[in-house]
Design a protein around this nucleic acid. Sequence first.
DNA 1: AAATAAATTTAGGCAAATCTAAAAATAGTT
DNA 2: AACTATTTTTAGATTTGCCTAAATTTATTT
Lengths: 217, 217
Amino acid sequence: MTISEENYIKVIYHLAQVSPKGVSTNAIAGTLDTKASSVTDMLKKLADKNWVSYQKYQGVSLTESGLQKAKMIVRKHRLWEVFLVEKLGFAWDEVHEIAEELEHIQSEALISKLDDFLGFPTVDPHGDPIPNAKGEMVKEERIVLSEAPLHQAYRFIGVKDSSAGFLQYLDKQQIALGATIIIQEREDFDASLSVLINDKVLSLSQKIAENLFVKQG
Amino acid sequence: MTISEENYIKVIYHLAQVSPKGVSTNAIAGTLDTKASSVTDMLKKLADKNWVSYQKYQGVSLTESGLQKAKMIVRKHRLWEVFLVEKLGFAWDEVHEIAEELEHIQSEALISKLDDFLGFPTVDPHGDPIPNAKGEMVKEERIVLSEAPLHQAYRFIGVKDSSAGFLQYLDKQQIALGATIIIQEREDFDASLSVLINDKVLSLSQKIAENLFVKQG
DNA sequence: AAATAAATTTAGGCAAATCTAAAAATAGTT
DNA sequence: AACTATTTTTAGATTTGCCTAAATTTATTT
């Protein structure tokens, strides 16, 4: 499997989370920053190799074997992110690009030993689940803060948007994974929230709140 | 710099250690397992980019900037090998192929933090020196065991041949880096050696002895 | 239901890195 | 010095992954 093929499979996997009935050519082109015609070319190749099922004009979805491949790429990406943050001391907003390269390293043994070395983590530094060697992962029950009811204690367990900009905003506000959040008030006008995070009062815009995954407790 | 360009630069660097006046097209082709015509093509590209000086039919050598690039690739390769052995628990005969992939990961920050994490090692698991961030490395005074005089205490500090086969032979004989070696006798007939390694008597063929780097003490 | 817009595919090309086969240059040998 | 063998380069093709421009299909409006 070439790096390019891996990138397509991975992107299709991620886009399929949002549109499970079929991923569009344009969506892939947008994500990979290529042209739609290039995507069409590649989809034919991927279909020939049986990693996607593809019908002209009808979008594309992963086959069982494509899905497995995708999960292994995601597994590698997230394990490397844990390594970069936990062992090398990178900040959580610095690791994505490096992991994009590392995820294409081919050795099975490497990933297995890395997993062991890291203590078999189940989530990456952004709270995303890490598939195990079989591709299984625990999807924690979680909601976005913007939809959580008032006056309940929540734990901040993941980000929806993991762009450097958003992560740096959270750093600046000292909002870290594991923080306890209680919504005190929701503004009718702009849906912004007044919250108590680790006993400090903060105001969060709707856009921020939409990108914070929380769970009860 | 593409992965292919990096591989050429690295191979030229290694071959230049043996033939410093100019590396031949065929030697490169042999090492990279490609055809001479492919090498010629690439040498033109590398010369255009000023990483090698190349004159038709006269072989090739690295420019100052090519040499610097080569050292950074070697640095990355060897640091990753240390990581694989010291942190992930790979054997010294298992790491070469994986490091061949890892050496092409592009982040400066990654290598700098990896170096730090590993405690700024100066040699890799095979005893080869690791260039620092500036490209400097300490070349330890060393000789091959086959040329060492009798009855002196030597320390085994590196292998000349780092193929898996040779390394596995050394494992089987329990000859590890750091071992103390004293030559008791050199056979006239086949130049084989009777040696004392960590107080055990062993017989080493000339071919073995030629591939063991030792230093006095 | 046409007409227009948007999305997708096809056709034809390009650059990188490789190849084979033939030509040219260098090295080795009688 | 001439001939042969070896090495190296050139010429022309191939594959992968991408592109532009044009054609086609699907979706959206009037």
